[in-house]
Every structure is written in structure tokens, then in C-alpha cells.
């Protein structure tokens, strides 16, 4: 379980402080896969950084029981001057995982070939996403924080990543940010909508999607 107690988070923008979470208390349970919705700039990425522990809240506490992944997205987590292989090694070392096992899985899964020996700065964003997703699937996290990177690339790769994720979700949970309603419906049991500093949970993902769409239309 990831429990949030009176968590408050805001950050400064050009037009004053933007509140991401206003004194929020609640929990992400480990048997539930949660789809997170919110318009661009609502703070979904910041929420993930808070949940992972990469960033501290302004006030309040976040209690994590179990291992939480870093926010898996198109950026962050890799050092640009290091090669893919060196980045894999770095991540294995900090998480105390076997480099050889993870590497063989990632090479096979991400299928980016000789790019493994090139600096990450030469990668396309899709390749970075494949690498990040591959590494995280090789490590055993109890919670995966995934920001849009489940299904990138061609149809065959999409299928492969969905299969691997489904396998993982037998023992782990996912918190998924996605603009794809179909993907959310496929993997998530419940939904949360982040809107104007409030995070509201809904018992089904369909309901969350409906609320989110209503919010979108209201702001337009």
C-alpha cells in the first residue's frame, strides 16, 4: 500500500503557485490497478514523482509498503552520456539486481540492437521508453508507475509489452497515466482523476474516464 497523509504539493509558475495536491489523504492499494487521468499540466508527472519518492511533498507524509518503481516515462532515469548498457548496469546496481539477468532480458525485450552500446542521447524517445520499460519489467517492483510508455512502437512490440505487463500484474500493481482510454480499460480496475489540486477516485475506470471527459469539455 502507498498511503498519503495530508499531502500538499505545489510549485511556482510564472502565473503564481500551482497546487497539484491540496491536503490529500488516501491510499493506493496493492491489489488495485489505477488509471490516472487529468488534463495536460494537472500534475500527473509530479504526482508520480511524489509517489516514487523522487520528490518530497511540501507538507504531509507518504508511506510506501513495498517496492515502488521510478516514474517510467519518456524522460528521466537515464544518463545521456552513458550507453544503454551502462545505464542498465547503473540501475541494477542501485536496486541491487543482477546485471546479467536484467541485461539479457532487456536486450531481448527492448530489441534496440547495437544501440545498447551507444550513448542514450542518440536514442529516439521511443527507444528510451522501450529501454526504461524493459528494465523496470526485469526488476521486481510491487508498484509500477507508468507514464504513457506501455505501448510504443510497432504492433508486435505493443503486443509484447502488454503480455509482459499482464504477467507482472499477477503479483504487482500498476498506476498508469495514459491518454488512451482503451489502454486504461485494458489494465486498470479503478480510476483517479486529478483536477484543480484534487485527486478523486472512482470505483470503475469507465466512470473516471467519463468524469475526465466532462472536465475536459468544461474547460474548453
Amino acid at each position: 500500500m502507498i498511503r498519503l497523509e495530508n499531502v500538499h504539493k505545489s510549485y511556482p509558475t510564472k502565473s503564481g503557485r500551482k497546487v497539484i495536491l491540496r491536503e490529500f489523504s488516501g491510499a493506493f492499494e496493492n491489489s488495485r490497478n489505477v488509471g490516472i487521468l487529468g488534463h495536460n499540466g494537472a500534475g500527473k508527472s509530479t504526482l508520480f514523482r511524489l509517489l516514487s519518492g523522487a520528490e518530497a511533498p511540501d507538507r504531509g507524509r507518504i508511506i510506501r509498503e513495498g517496492r515502488v518503481s521510478w516514474p517510467l516515462g519518456f524522460s528521466g532515469g537515464f544518463h545521456n552520456s552513458l550507453t544503454g548498457r551502462e545505464n542498465v548496469r547503473f540501475i541494477c546496481q542501485i536496486y541491487g539486481a543482477s546485471y546479467r539477468e536484467v541485461l539479457s532480458f532487456v536486450e531481448d525485450f527492448a530489441a534496440i540492437g547495437r544501440f545498447m552500446d551507444m550513448p542514450v542521447k542518440s536514442y529516439s524517445s521511443g527507444m528510451k521508453a522501450r529501454l526504461a520499460f524493459g528494465i523496470s519489467m526485469a526488476l521486481n517492483f510491487d508498484y509500477y508507475l507508468i507514464d504513457e510508455v506501455v505501448a510504443v512502437g510497432d504492433a508486435a512490440f505493443k503486443k509484447k509489452s502488454k503480455t509482459v505487463l499482464s504477467e507482472r500484474l499477477k503479483s504487482s500493481s500498476v498506476l498508469l497515466v495514459s491518454h488512451s482510454a482503451q489502454l486504461l480499460k485494458e489494465f486498470c480496475d479503478v480510476g483517479g482523476v486529478l483536477h484543480n489540486g484534487e485527486l478523486v477516485f472512482y470505483p470503475t475506470i469507465d466512470e473516471a474516464i467519463a468524469v475526465h471527459e466532462a472536465n475536459q469539455n468544461a474547460t474548453i
Binding site: 514523482r49 519518492g53 523522487a54 521510478w70 528521466g76 537515464f78 544518463h79 547503473f90 540501475i91 536496486y95
Partner: peptide
């Protein structure tokens, strides 16, 4: 120089 790695919570 290590900004991207600070996205990894243990760092």
C-alpha cells in the same frame, strides 16, 4: 550533471 538520475528515487 546528474539531474536525470535524480528521477530515480534511491539517488
Amino acid at each position: 550533471a546528474n539531474m536525470p538520475l535524480l528521477a530515480l528515487p534511491p539517488v
